[in-house]
Design a binder for these strands. Structure first.
Length: 594
DNA sequence: AACATGACTTGTTAGCACACGA
DNA sequence: TCGTGTGCTAACAAGTCATGTT
């Protein structure tokens, strides 16, 4: 298998492959260069030569940190302007009709659209929304509306529901029209030219205004995400390109020509004050190469990981507390694939942690648990407020260190008080060029897939069995990385449906078996050609049904095991596609598998 | 060293198109 | 042909990490 062998890396440009089995088809890291200019005859030939020369040139990326030489695009698609509600849709305050000014009405509709969501019942959400809503009101509205609980948004909500219903009921023709219009916009704004290649842009639409929905217990949930105007937008393109035009009567905040960055458009968002970008699609050269580099770094880690492990084990004994903390944290990152854990500004975001920001309250130590010694129990909210819960027996030395770190601390104190991500990454950088905490996640995810594939699959399995094995290997990675999902709402039902199919298939199987038996008896009696043929036909039918049944059973197992596990993220971001390619090639060479 | 900022990757989910079976 | 379940992508939030500033 390619990932961790010393064999030559496959150039990313030529890989765009994936074992599709559960719907997640995409495996990043490929790109297909697209020639953008076509000419005829001699000129074209010459042009082609130039193009190939450029390709060659492109093989060695520039060393001065520039990301492109030429960049041309049409700019972003702005959010559509607000359309006031028709007159018959009313808003009531304290039981009385109240006509809202357009700005106040717009913000009210944001809330109305979410009325069915449990978000709108949360105190924090309502409070933040109300506060921002008031800012949009006229002074008259402000004096009249003093209590959000007296606001009645139901007519608005009903109106929007009816609208979306009407959209569903549209005729084929109307739907087609919309589709075509979307396609037109995509063709116009969805692509850019970067260094002679036409590239797909990731998200070319500016985020429309609305209410911010943070994840988890977010202190800013419900706040108004304001409308982005051309005056807020920075355009990035090359000087010698045709610059995107702002809408009539407006101007961009700035047009710059910075080829040290990859983004085309940026603006500052008002909730966290952070910058949002429009960048290229994952299929683009610039993303694909970065992706490939990431896995190359992981492969380099493979070569020295044992050395690093020996090193941090040694550091558990260090005289210096900061070194011990660093070493234990690194052990967690390596062993449990925890994220680095940057500090976050308190009160600005949900309270979540990673390795370096773990607090005393997030771990529990058990000198003995059941039949295991030195067990550490982790229980904390990680990225996106996803709970991480795990119990792991650790080496005695780690355990003793942890006890030491906990001494004289309150639950809300940092576990690693002498450590942060910057210190950790600086250390890692010294150990290996380009090494950071997240490389361990990539490395451990990919090596896990590889090991699991080796362990779980055999070339003579049936295709459905191979798919199940592949998914199980993928699942092991997702569990390692704690990629969870809420069990789909329709899970039980779809499981039932599958079970019914299995039952039916089972019945069908016993029926066909019976028929086969009958045919055999008949053949024994008559010994003629016709009955012989019949036996063959029935035998085939039984075989086919057996296969179908097995396939269904495999599917059921797969789905059941996958109930609360999300495979997509690891597939997209952590698994070197070359491993899957190599696995599939191995199967081809070993067996009759396709 | 602490802090701020900027750029980029990683993450979940809502909603929608579309295939599928009744 | 119609509803319905499912897979997929767009949307956008939330991380990581480097770099510059105080």
């Amino acid at each position: 298998m390619h990932f961790l062998n010393e064999s030559d890396p496959i150039k990313p440009r030529y890989i765009f492959f994936h074992v599709s089995s559960d719907g997640c088809i995409l495996f990043r890291f490929e790109y297909k260069p697209k020639k953008i200019k076509t000419e005829n005859g001699k000129k074209a030939k010459k042009r082609k030569q130039e193009y190939e020369d450029e390709e060659e040139e492109e093989e060695e990326r520039s060393t001065d940190g520039s990301k492109w030489k030429f960049l041309e695009h049409k700019g972003p698609v702005l959010a559509p302007p607000y359309e006031p509600l028709p007159g018959h849709v009313r808003f009531f305050y304290d039981g009385k009709l109240l006509r809202l000014s357009a700005p106040a009405e717009e913000v009210a509709t944001f809330f109305a659209k979410m009325l069915d969501h449990e978000y709108t019942t949360k105190e924090m959400f309502r409070k933040n929304f109300y506060k921002d809503w008031r800012k949009e009101m006229t002074s008259e509205e402000k004096s009249k509306i003093t209590d959000i609980n007296k606001c009645n948004f139901t007519e608005m909500s009903e109106y929007f529901k009816a609208q979306s219903e009407a959209r569903k009921q549209m005729s084929k023709d109307e739907k087609l029209k919309i589709k075509e219009e979307n396609e037109r916009i995509l063709q116009e704004y969805g692509f850019c030219v970067m260094d002679n290649h036409k590239e797909r842009i990731g998200n070319f639409r500016i985020e429309p205004p609305g209410l911010f929905r943070g994840r988890g217990d977010h202190p800013k949930m419900g706040m108004l995400k304001r409308r982005i105007r051309p005056e807020d937008i920075i355009i990035n393109c090359s000087k010698d390109s045709k610059h995107p035009k702002p809408p009539q009567g407006t101007r961009w905040k700035e047009v710059r020509h910075d080829n040290k960055v990859t983004w085309l458009v940026s603006w500052t968002e008002n909730i966290q004050g952070s910058i949002k970008y429009i960048m290229l699609n994952p299929s683009s050269r610039i993303k694909g190469e970065k992706d490939w580099q990431k896995y190359e770094t992981a492969r380099r880690l493979k070569k020295c990981v044992e050395r690093l492990r020996a090193q941090y084990r040694e550091d558990w004994k260090s005289k210096e507390m900061r070194v011990r903390q660093r070493a234990v944290a690194l052990y967690f990152i390596d062993k449990l694939a925890l994220r680095a854990g940057n500090e976050k500004e308190e009160g600005e975001t949900a309270d979540t942690v990673g390795c370096c920001s773990l607090r005393v309250e997030h771990i529990k130590l058990y000198p003995k648990m059941d039949d295991q010694e030195y067990v550490v129990e982790f229980d904390f909210l990680g990225k996106d407020s996803i709970r991480y819960y795990n119990k792991m027996p650790v080496e005695k030395r780690v355990f003793k260190n942890l006890q030491l770190f906990l001494e004289n601390k309150q639950p809300e104190d940092d576990l690693f008080d002498r450590l942060n991500t910057s210190i950790l990454n600086k250390h890692l950088q010294e150990l290996m060029d380009g090494l950071t905490a997240k490389v361990f996640r990539t490395y451990n995810a990919s090596i896990t897939l590889q090991q699991q594939l080796k362990e779980l699959t055999s070339p003579d399995e049936s295709i459905p069995a191979k798919i199940l094995s592949y998914n199980r290997a993928n699942r092991a990675v997702a569990i390692l990385c704690n990629h969870q999902r809420a069990a789909p709402k329709t899970f039980e039902k779809s499981m039932q449906n599958l079970q019914t199919k299995i039952d039916e298939k089972q019945k069908q199987l016993s029926a066909t078996r019976k028929q086969l038996k009958g045919a055999k008896t008949e053949h024994k009696a008559s010994h003629d050609d016709r009955s012989k043929k019949m036996v063959e036909v029935k035998r085939k039918a039984v075989q086919r049904t057996e296969e179908q049944l097995m396939k269904l059973q495999m599917q059921a197992t797969d789905r059941e095991e996958n109930k609360q596990i999300a495979l997509g993220t690891s597939k997209l971001n952590y698994l070197d596609p070359r491993i899957s390619v190599a696995w599939q090639e191995m199967l081809v060479h070993c067996g009759k598998a396709e």
